[in-house]
Design a protein around this nucleic acid. Structure first.
Length: 496
RNA sequence: GAGUCGCUAGCUCAGUCGGUAGAGCAACUGCCUUUUAAGCAGUGGGUCGGGAGUUCAAUUCUCCCGCGACUCACCA
């Protein structure tokens, strides 16, 4: 408990002492409830006063002399309670009115409807279950309009428990997140995918280009890294004979924090042997649209001012064509770096000196195309140079079988037909090692065991990764990843 | 990592062209037995994010620091 005890807290601690003197335990061992607020309201009939037993947090208080109204909130919602001195007796009524907003209480009573028409509980017995000694922000509401909303974002994230307790909608957002994650598991396990868990602590962090967190194992006396991706382990499982696997769990990247980045984030990766990237395209659009239908009840959603239609099929367009569509630049016709630089210039982009044709194309895509892909679009067939882990297209080896789905101007995943040639893979690792030695901290390390696995033979396969936090942002219409993570990373408060 | 903005009572916010601060809600004391952003009357509550400087005087001006939000850069 912190030292900064305000007058308000002192008063509540005094109340605890007084309650103890009256024989009331401010923190009783247990309480069992029978009913939820919303169920009571949904099942209410005007001609019967039902006995109910609810428990939750006291959210408002309206004492009126010898009677008092209050609202009690539980997980389901809130319900009005009505206490009368002539029912409770003078002492118990006094204890009831001494309850503070924020206290956890249990209430037994009968249902009725007030003059104003609100379904309520007439209190027969009210018990304190946990005293709240810190004043809770008081958020009021009338006709859907909020007053004194708990708005300090830093406090909301640091003290998420308070945010959940007082901010309407926050609980619902996290419940939706949980259901979508369950829904993904159901969707995939229903299609023959096996959920697996692969190491989060890895000696060689691979599968992505990112800086890892490092740590140390004392007994083995080795440095370990928190994984940046599960990819290489999941593909080892394909070698072993699991034909469809997925992992839905945390990745860790030692990078900056922004509205789209948290150092630990939740990633779905799935792999299917004997499929290719076209199968993954169908899966991506079917899974995401059906999740929307199931959990939002619709496939047309509002996101930050845009209306987005997730109904499949989504637009499918090649990397070259999508650049042409939005910028009129046709990379099919561009054969030299000079032409590419002129093209960049024509769309108002100054590019760095040492870029290749396709790196310039990628710059144009990121700067001039990406944010226009508001409606779901699958951008496919990337240049090989930009895609070190994908398989080349049979009829056009300069390109690879890879796609990225875009929604609301943002990349929400990455998928490709997997590279399973150990010779090619080894050459690519060697290239990465050279880059690493040249100072690129995001370049990958050589993973000889992974090469060894491929040498045993990995079936042709397709794989996909989807950033779950960002997908949830779309579903809860939030512009910040912090609204999708219960406890986003913040710098610890300095205590001095 | 860079830029911009913010930090005042438990919460939401005013305010001080430099003279140590106010409102609403919450709290406390009265009154009130169907209220609902309950109402009426009264009361208390703040090292104005932290430190230093300038000044007779700093919450206000200057500098440094801390934390956050947003934008940019990197990624998913």
């Amino acid at each position: 408990m912190s030292e900064d005890v305000s007058q308000l807290i002192k008063l509540r601690i005094e109340k605890i002492e007084n309650l103890k003197k009256s024989g009331v335990n401010p923190y009783p061992v247990r309480y069992f409830k029978d009913d939820y607020a919303e169920d009571i309201k949904n099942n209410f009939k005007d001609d019967e006063a039902k006995d109910v037993n609810v428990a939750g947090r006291l959210k408002s208080k309206r004492p009126m002399g010898k009677a008092a109204f209050a609202h009690l909130e539980d997980l389901s919602g809130s319900i009005q309670i009505y206490a009368r001195e002539d029912v409770l007796g003078k002492e118990n009524f006094g204890i009831f009115t001494s309850f503070d907003i924020g206290d956890i209480i249990g209430v037994k009573g009968q249902t009725f409807r007030t003059k104003h028409g609100e379904i309520s509980i007439k209190v027969q017995k009210a018990e304190l279950l946990a005293k709240c000694i810190r004043p809770l922000p008081i958020v009021k509401e009338k006709d859907g309009q909020l007053f004194d909303e708990f708005a300090d974002r830093e406090q909301r994230y640091r003290q998420r428990y308070v945010d959940l307790a007082v901010s309407p909608g926050v609980k619902a957002d996290f419940i939706l997140r949980s259901r979508i994650i369950s829904g993904i598991r159901e969707y995939l396990t229903g299609r023959g995918y096996l959920e697996v868990e692969t190491p989060m602590m890895q000696a060689i962090p691979g599968g992505a280009a990112a800086r890892p967190f490092s740590t140390h194992h004392n007994a083995l006396d080795i440095d370990l890294y928190l994984r940046i991706a599960p990819e290489l382990y999941l593909k080892r499982l394909l070698v072993g004979g699991f034909e469809r696997v997925f992992e839905l769990n945390r990745n860790f990247r030692n990078e900056g924090i922004s509205t789209k980045h948290n150092p630990e984030f939740t990633m779905l990766e799935l792999y299917s042997a004997y499929q290719d990237y076209k199968y993954m395209m169908n899966l991506a659009e079917d899974m995401i649209s059906s999740l929307a239908l199931k959990h939002l009840g619709k496939m047309v959603i509002d996101y930050q001012g845009s209306t987005i239609d997730l109904t499949p099929p989504w637009e499918k367009i090649t990397f070259v064509d999508v650049i042409k569509k939005y910028t009129k630049v046709d990379f099919q016709q561009i054969k030299t770096v000079e032409e590419a630089r002129k093209a960049a210039d024509s769309v108002g982009l100054a590019v760095a000196d040492d870029l290749s044709i396709w790196k310039i194309a990628n710059e144009i895509f990121e700067e001039r195309v990406e944010d226009k892909l508001i409606q779901p679009a699958i951008v496919m067939d990337y240049p090989k140079e930009l895609s070190p882990l994908s398989k080349s297209m049979e009829d056009n080896p300069e390109f690879v079988e890879r796609f990225e789905p875009y929604i609301a101007g943002r990349e929400i995943g990455n998928a490709f037909t997997e590279l399973n040639d150990p010779f090619d893979q080894k050459a690519r690792f060697e290239d990465q090692v050279r880059k690493r030695e040249a100072g690129d901290e995001e370049a990958q390390m050589m993973d000889n065991d992974y090469i060894c696995a491929l040498e045993y033979g990995m079936p042709p396969a397709a794989g996909m990764g989807i950033g779950i936090d960002r997908l949830i942002m779309l579903f809860i219409n939030s512009s910040s990843i912090k609204d999708t993570i219960l406890f986003p990373l913040l710098r610890p408060e300095k205590i001095d």
